[in-house]
Amino acid sequence: MTFLYELRKNKVLFLMALPALILLVLFNYLPMFGVILAFKNYNFYDGILGSPWIGFKNFEYLFKGDAWLITRNTLLYNFVFIIFGLILAVALAIVLDEIRNRFLSKTYQTILIMPYFLSWTIVALIFYAFLSADKGIINQALTFMGMHPINFYSETTYWPYILIFVFFWKSVGYSSIIYLASITGISPEYYEAATIDGASKWQQIRFITIPCLKPIIIIMTILSIGKIFYADFGLFYQVTYNSGALYPVTQVIDTYVYNGLTSMGNYGMTAAAGLYQSFVGFVLVIITNWIVKKMDKDSALF
């Protein structure tokens, strides 16, 4: 009866959690019965629960053809996005925080988050203006300098760099906000004490700022590991204009599913892809969380 005892003891805490729990049940757990679609041959006549079971047939297409290449692309891009994203966002937050002039710091911040608000369609258009083979700015410059024009949308070589650049260009400013706010929350006493002890600015960053950011860094990393099998559809589909010649380096799980299923509109296979992506992420998060828990109990996700 621990539960009842806890309930009585922490009545208020349960009450505080209640609105959130209700929202979770209504908007997340109630529709979750839909995951069984992944194992069904869905028809409207029998409904979701009544449609015939077909085992793992809906998953088969995820492991056909270029599956290995696509999985590799998804994982590699996400590794780069997670690791460099972390370093860049934290570095940017520290730099923005250290700028002496507050007005300048604020201006930089505002400008750096701007690309985040552009839709992928617009981003694709803008980069097309630079990269187009027929009238792109870069190719005009190359021709002007007497060099060979590059047919960007047919050449795989450049795309890993282009995609990584576009991703960070669009998101780093926005994701540094979390770290910036986190730095703001660090007690100034630490810095005062360190200064009195004669610590240099670099030592302060290394021994105060970064350790204080550790919990949020760990949490953010665990959360992104959960999404490691998901790719940003807009980045890989729209920015590349879904150009087939680039597939060896641009095709990821999400674009594969989209290309494969749009003409069929198969609910079961769509659900299967989502479940597959979630399940892998889930397993990885459980493992990561377990490791983190071993090392530092308070930093773990749950």
């Binding site: 087939g244 095709q251 494969g260 749009t262």
Partner: peptide
């Protein structure tokens, strides 16, 4: 449908570049 999903992807990769003569 399994084959069609995979074939759709092959088509998405090769159909347009070949038809447009860019490869």
């Amino acid at each position: 449908s399994t084959e069609v999903a995979a074939i759709n992807n092959v088509l998405a990769e090769y159909y347009r570049p070949l038809i447009n003569g860019t490869v």
